[in-house]
Nucleic acid binder design. Sequence first.
DNA 1: TGTACATCAGTGAACGCGCGTTCACTGATGTAC
DNA 2: TGTACATCAGTGAACGCGCGTTCACTGATGTAC
Lengths: 244, 244
Amino acid sequence: MLDGMPTARARARAELTQEIKDLARKHLASEGAAGLSLRAVARDLGMVSSAVYRYFPSRDDLLTALIVDAYDAVGAAAEEAEAAVADRTDIGARWMAVTAAVRSWATAHPEEWALIYGSPVPGYRAPEDTIGPATRVPLVLLGLLADGHAAGVIEPAGDDLPVPRALGRELVELARGAGVVVPEPLLARGLLAWSALIGAVGFELFGHLHNVVSERDELFARHMAELARMVGFPVARRRSGRRR
Amino acid sequence: MLDGMPTARARARAELTQEIKDLARKHLASEGAAGLSLRAVARDLGMVSSAVYRYFPSRDDLLTALIVDAYDAVGAAAEEAEAAVADRTDIGARWMAVTAAVRSWATAHPEEWALIYGSPVPGYRAPEDTIGPATRVPLVLLGLLADGHAAGVIEPAGDDLPVPRALGRELVELARGAGVVVPEPLLARGLLAWSALIGAVGFELFGHLHNVVSERDELFARHMAELARMVGFPVARRRSGRRR
DNA sequence: TGTACATCAGTGAACGCGCGTTCACTGATGTAC
DNA sequence: TGTACATCAGTGAACGCGCGTTCACTGATGTAC
């Protein structure tokens, strides 16, 4: 126990904890968060239901673990995609990369997306532990605003709408909390972009494009380009729009 | 039965049907859609659970009725607010009225909003009956695009992003189905505005502004004004931003 | 290295609860003549 | 207007199912000396 090697018991514990979460994620897909059942998970795992309580003290704790994992997963996807853009001065490209990564994670894990960005689970109160992971995506976006502003590449909106006094103060305070300086109108536009991104992904995932638009990749890319223009991120013209 | 007067039995039936739905809506708020229970509704109504089956053949049918009602309610709210704008040429004002009405209905009926715009209810498949009511809000928005375009008051986006061929065709087809003619890029921007509207309302309702922004009325109004500018709706400068 | 003890994972039974749906029934309301 | 019959609303019992959580227990793994 003194040396770094974890004991066999500890390893088994970590593995089973992971297996429980993985299986729970599967159940999430078929039953939804409200229908997530410790008993069903235990059954599929071949153990007796009470055994799961050695790993998660209650159903809500399991749910919390899934939520934290989901936020971390989409956050990591966004961070990696953003970091992979070679030309760091191309804020528009970084925005397109982040948004595409978020959407593609969501498409691959719709039930987890619904868990964090869908309707709240009734009776469930998210604990503090979820806050950190939840801020990863917005922090990436805030980074774009800050970098773009510092580099002076953000195109000013033709006629900036006024930001109400109290709202502006709140936004600036938020940015300061993250250690960056960004003017109020830009923060407001960035927040709209974030909300519109989540909205666009949810819109598609929750079925509102059903019988409306089938060219979803193209639609999403165009929407994101439009949002980039609204925020002031310079975006290269002529996106291909070929895929899928 | 031949004359117009409905029989006492028919009136009682209509009333009880309504009572069941009203109570079910209440349960929706506390338990969520997945937890909506015929037995619980019957219990609160003081009848035996099997009696509810005289009114709704199954739990899913009750859910469908609630969904249809919700779409109709938010649709009616949007239509009324839009129609109440005296100056019909002021497309920007009409947009602001519609979006404010949608948000205020959603705030007043969060559980119903979640039912129609939140995560899909697992295992529930929406029947055809929901399609009509679901299109009321988007039809109002489409009307704004058509009117604005016809009147020539839509401000062109500085440099319109290209609309991929297939996507453009789909959009134009949709507009034609609604009996209006609107250019492709405008349709695309309108669709983004719609999706961003739903996104912004959901973002707030589902708690993502928690600990982020408390000045929600101001934020929403500004977002909608920003979206209006993006679409090309002329919006009067200097919105007050005082309320609440 | 070997032994005594402590920790921990998993068992199985139980508590008390809720659910959707079916079915044969009683009694009230409505309809046709 | 009065009576015979059909329709319908609501009852109560039952079927078969699932849930979260607790608790005393066995047996394996880990720790300290």
